[in-house]
């Protein structure tokens, strides 16, 4: 592990950058949601305050739970997300990667859910168990469409299975979003990441009024702080991935940076709008939506992509 890699991991596309950007975008989310609801919303540093406050709180561990799993779960998810953000960031900003890293990424992204589920069910709380069941069902629901849109990107890039290569193809030949298959896949991808981030209307696993925040119910103190951070870190990871796969990636000149930031903000704002204009759906409706509507549509995108449209 070279010094450069440590920098990648801990500072720029990795830990520090993702965390700070995530918490800031988390403020945007809260602020915009508040504005939607005719409220003022929290101050800019609110998420940082929340995080620091949670660090100082007491950690309560359920007596007859699996303690080590319960404590380790948020940190596993955290470390995984940092690795993922490093992978995506390095591909996005430094145009580096390894062969087939998109498949690796698809599987790594599941680890967040697994950690959440195992951490939640380790407590033995009924609500956490229910939430774990819902979380995995949500994973099943959105995974099918997510696989398809990843394949669309792969096919459109001429069967290149690398993030950096997919971005390079787009830099050379224009973003995929300009083609019919690309735009369909992008839109489905937008809904998929809404589900993967458990934002309303897909916050079924962490529904507060039904199952008391599900798997997170028993967490308190620093582990909760890290779940909190994880949630906001996904605000950087998923939009970045979407831009990388369909919207032409990143070019390192002045205009490119501005253009990239605009794209990123647009995606986040669309997600926040979706979040604030829909009630939470039921788990079977979510399954039905993804399997019977999103799947055929993304399949059409795949067919179009194979046909070269």
């Amino acid at each position: 592990m070279s010094l450069q890699m440590v920098f990648y991991l801990l500072v720029f596309p990795g830990l520090l950058f993702t965390a700070v950007l995530g918490l800031s975008i988390g403020w945007l989310d809260r602020k915009l949601s508040a504005r939607f609801q005719y409220r003022v919303g929290p101050p800019f540093l609110q998420n940082f305050y929340d995080f620091i406050k949670l660090l100082g709180k007491e950690t309560i561990v359920v007596r007859d739970s699996v303690h080590s799993l319960f404590i380790a779960a948020p940190f596993v998810a955290f470390a995984m997300l940092v690795c993922i953000s490093t992978l995506i960031g390095v591909a996005l900003f430094y145009k580096q990667g390894f062969l087939g890293d998109l498949f690796v990424l698809m599987y790594l992204l599941m680890i967040y859910s697994i950690a959440l589920i195992l951490g939640g069910s380790a407590t033995g709380n009924v609500y956490s168990s229910l939430g774990a069941g819902r979380e995995i069902k949500m994973l099943l629901a959105d995974e099918l469409a997510f696989i398809l849109i990843c394949l669309v990107a792969i096919v459109k890039a001429g069967y290149e299975i690398g993030l950096a290569e997919i971005a390079a193809v787009q830099q050379a030949r224009g973003a995929f979003i300009a083609s019919p298959s690309g735009i369909i896949a992008f839109l489905i991808g937008l809904i998929c990441i809404q589900a993967k981030m458990a934002l309303p209307p897909f916050n079924i696993a962490e529904a507060e009024t039904e199952i008391v925040e599900g798997p997170l119910m028993e967490y308190s103190g620093p582990p909760l702080a890290f779940w909190y951070l994880n949630h906001f870190m996904m605000f950087t990871i998923y939009p970045f991935l979407l831009i990388l796969l369909f919207w032409g990636g990143f070019s390192a000149n002045g205009l490119g940076i501005l253009w990239f930031s605009l794209k990123y903000l647009l995606i986040v704002v669309v997600m926040i709008i979706l979040k604030n204009t829909n009630p939470r759906v039921r788990i079977d409706s979510a399954l039905r939506f993804f399997w019977r509507i999103a799947f055929p549509i993304s399949f059409i995108a795949l067919v179009l992509a194979v046909l070269g449209v």
Partner: peptide, 9 residues
């Protein structure tokens, strides 16, 4: 209760 906080507000 159905997760539609905007309606609530």
């Amino acid at each position: 209760f159905i997760g539609y906080d905007t309606l609530w507000m």
